[in-house]
């Protein structure tokens, strides 16, 4: 049987979901028999190729993340969101409660560690969006694995469900937001 092709990205995130995925330990041996990783921070492949499953960690906070997410969506059949940031906005979304300009000024000028700070601006760096969004507010998402980060077992459960041909919906007792 042909291997299932998977691409993963991390957007506005801490990479914790990917780390938690690697915590599946020896189960990864079994997994790679059925799965082939395409573009992913783990493989370090940079270009998007058509895949069966796209996985996204993190929320959408700037124009680049928006673009990457849309490109992933265009190249995958099923899109799965990992973690509270991707599902709900999460900790990365906390900056949305402040004015964008205030956030930038605080970080690049007022922060105690700065010396002669300047606010970086496009085109050198992607522009921040006014507010951080969960991924399903930008593209269509097929399934969700919330958690901060989701447990390795929960991630594995969701992947196995996909391999079995089902769209995973976490049962109540596997749900975690922390």
């Amino acid at each position: 049987m042909a291997k299932v092709k998977v691409a993963t990205v991390w957007l506005e995130a801490c990479s914790g979901c990917h780390m938690s995925f690697l915590d599946i330990d020896e189960a990864i041996v079994e997994l790679v028999r059925a799965v082939e990783f395409s573009r992913s921070p783990i493989t370090d492949i940079k270009e998007f190729l058509p895949v069966d499953v796209g996985i996204v960690e993190g929320s959408v906070g700037n124009t680049e993340e928006e673009e990457v997410l849309k490109e992933l969506r265009a190249n995958c059949k099923i899109l799965m969101a990992w973690g509270d940031c991707a599902c709900f906005g999460g900790v990365c979304g906390m900056r949305s409660t402040f004015d964008k300009e205030d956030v930038l000024r605080r970080a690049y000028i007022e922060a105690e560690s700065n010396y002669d700070g300047k606010i970086p601006c496009p085109p050198g760096v992607p522009a921040l969006l006014e507010q951080v969004k969960p991924v399903n507010h930008v593209v269509k998402v097929d399934c969700y694995v919330p958690g901060c980060p989701p447990d390795a077992e929960t991630i594995l459960y969701a992947l196995k469900e996909l391999l079995e041909g089902r769209i995973p919906v976490l049962p109540s007792d596997m749900m975690r937001f922390d």
Partner: peptide, 9 residues
């Protein structure tokens, strides 16, 4: 939210 499997908004 867990009981109602609220996995997205």
């Amino acid at each position: 939210a867990y009981r109602y499997q609220m996995d997205n908004l």
